[in-house]
Every structure is written in structure tokens, then in C-alpha cells.
């Protein structure tokens, strides 16, 4: 997957935990304004790859650049500068329990002292409206919200600073099909509105087909197929076919104990 001027570029990225090799030479480009979805089974390294880009984990080898800035081996200052371009929707929402919803949404802006508390609250209410939530939830605690509502608040937090790049980690996991579709619609709408580049990881094919311009499949630490979303049904790759149709039989063997 090569791109003339990629927003995010990974070259030969490797990451191992002890003897277990999780990423085994990942090459991936994500273009400006593009929405790329990484699919793959559980434990194939999707989250590890995302965390390496975010600087939460350090890649053992290879290069990761964001707008041309190298992230691998970068010092805290550079990483913080790069992270200021990011918005991130975590799998479990990862909202701060000790803060009300509005402070969660505007946390990044308050932390960077870009706004005062009154402005932050106004902005949080506006961002909540963007994800279809009323001002009445702003004062609630995250624990008072359902799973779907927490995801929407987390989405509002991810877009609060109008990021250039948004990461979505399993955005629909644990949600009922209707709420999952609501979240997918919001992701498509918001990435278009903000004009952001999006990199998502999921094993939900309905979600992947809806939010992606391009899809790449990760298997055993490598990208084994990548292409436009509309081509995935004719990929000609038996691993991809087994995964997208959810078949037990095929080249991918699941470790199942009798």
C-alpha cells in the first residue's frame, strides 16, 4: 500500500513480547482524508499496531511517520506534538470516571489550556450535540450512561480538538446491531465533517464495509491483503474470504481446545 504523500506511513514495523512476535514487518500508508480499516482476528496485533503509532508501545524495528515526523524512538516532546494531531476512540470508551461527561469531552482542550472552563463546557455541549446527545447529559457521570452512550461521549471527546487523524479501536464491539449502526453512521459523518484521516481496527465486517475507503487484513503480524472496500469480496485471497464470511473451515486455524 503506497501513497504519494501519506498522512501515516509504516515501514517494516516489528514488535515482539518476549518470544512472541506480534508485528512482523508491517508496511502501510494512510493518505490524507482517507479512511482505512484494519481487519483481523483477535490477537493478530491490530491494537498493538495502533498503540505503536500512538507511542503507547515502542516498536522494536522499522519506521512510523506521521506527516513526515518519525515516531519510533521519538522523545516525549515530539510524541506529545504528534499526539496533539490525534483523536482516539478506545474500545471500552475509557472515559474518566472521576469527571463529569462535559469535562471528559473537553479534557484535551483544558489540559492544553486552549480554553477556560466556561468555554470548555460550551464546546463540550456542542460536540455532544454533534454525536446526537443533549446538553442534559453533560453534568452526568460516565457511570450513569449506557455502553452506547459512553461510546458516543468517547466519540465526542475524540473529535473535541478537531484532530487531523482519528483512530477507532473496535468502535462497535459490545454494542447491539442498531447502536453499532448509529456509531458507524456517526463515524462516517464526523470524519467527513471534520475532514479527518481515519484509521480503524475492527473484526466487525459490517462496520468495516460502512466506514472504510480501503481495507487491509492483518494476519500473523503481516498485512496479507489490502485494497479498496468494494474489492474485498473479490480479493482472491482465501484468508480474507474465510475471515469476511466468518467460516470455521479454511486456512486460518483457531486454537480451540476440546
Amino acid at each position: 500500500m503506497t501513497n504519494v504523500n501519506p498522512k501515516i506511513s509504516l515501514r517494516g514495523v516489528k514488535k515482539a513480547f518476549g518470544p512472541k512476535v506480534v508485528l512482523d514487518g508491517i508496511d502501510l500508508d494512510v493518505g490524507v482524508g482517507e479512511s482505512v480499516v484494519i481487519i483481523g482476528g483477535s490477537g493478530t496485533g491490530k491494537s498493538v499496531m495502533l498503540k505503536c503509532i500512538l507511542g503507547l508501545l515502542h516498536a522494536d524495528q522499522g519506521s512510523i511517520t506521521v506527516d513526515g515526523t518519525e515516531v519510533v524512538g521519538a522523545n516525549a516532546q515530539v510524541q506529545e506534538q504528534v499526539n496533539s494531531k490525534f483523536g482516539m476512540l478506545f474500545q471500552g470508551a475509557a472515559l474518566f470516571d472521576s469527571l463529569p461527561v462535559w469535562e471528559n469531552v473537553s479534557f484535551g482542550l483544558l489540559a492544553q489550556k486552549r480554553v477556560d472552563r466556561d468555554e470548555a463546557k460550551e464546546l463540550a455541549v456542542a460536540k455532544l450535540a454533534q454525536v446526537g446527545m443533549g446538553a442534559d447529559v453533560a453534568e452526568l457521570s460516565p457511570a450513569e450512561l449506557s455502553g452506547g452512550m459512553q461510546k458516543r461521549v468517547a466519540l465526542a471527546r475524540a473529535i473535541a480538538s478537531d484532530p487531523e487523524i482519528i483512530f477507532f479501536d473496535e468502535p462497535t464491539t459490545g454494542l447491539d446491531p442498531i447502536m453499532a449502526d448509529v456509531i458507524n453512521d456517526l463515524i462516517v459523518k464526523i470524519t467527513r465533517e471534520v475532514g479527518a484521516t481515519a484509521l480503524s481496527i475492527t473484526h466487525d465486517m459490517t462496520s468495516a464495509r460502512k466506514i472504510a475507503n480501503r481495507i487491509a487484513m492483518l494476519y500473523e503480524g503481516k498485512i496479507i491483503w489490502a485494497g479498496p472496500t468494494e474489492d474485498i469480496d473479490q480479493s482472491g485471497n482465501e484468508y480474507v474470504d474465510q475471515f469476511i464470511y466468518g467460516k470455521a473451515d479454511g486456512p486460518i486455524k483457531m486454537a480451540v481446545r476440546a
Binding site: 498503540k51 500512538l54 516525549a76 506529545e80 499526539n83 482516539m88 478506545f90 475509557a94 472515559l95 489540559a111
Partner: peptide, 22 residues
Amino acid sequence: GTMRVTEQIDALTTLSTNPMKF
């Protein structure tokens, strides 16, 4: 510890906030 296992500490980092400092 709960913040760690629920990725809230990772979320702090992505929001440009150093968890050690915060």
C-alpha cells in the same frame, strides 16, 4: 489500577497529558 486496565491512562497520553504529572 482500574484506570490502567480500562485504558484510561492510555487515554490521558493520547490527550497530550502526562499520566505521571496528572
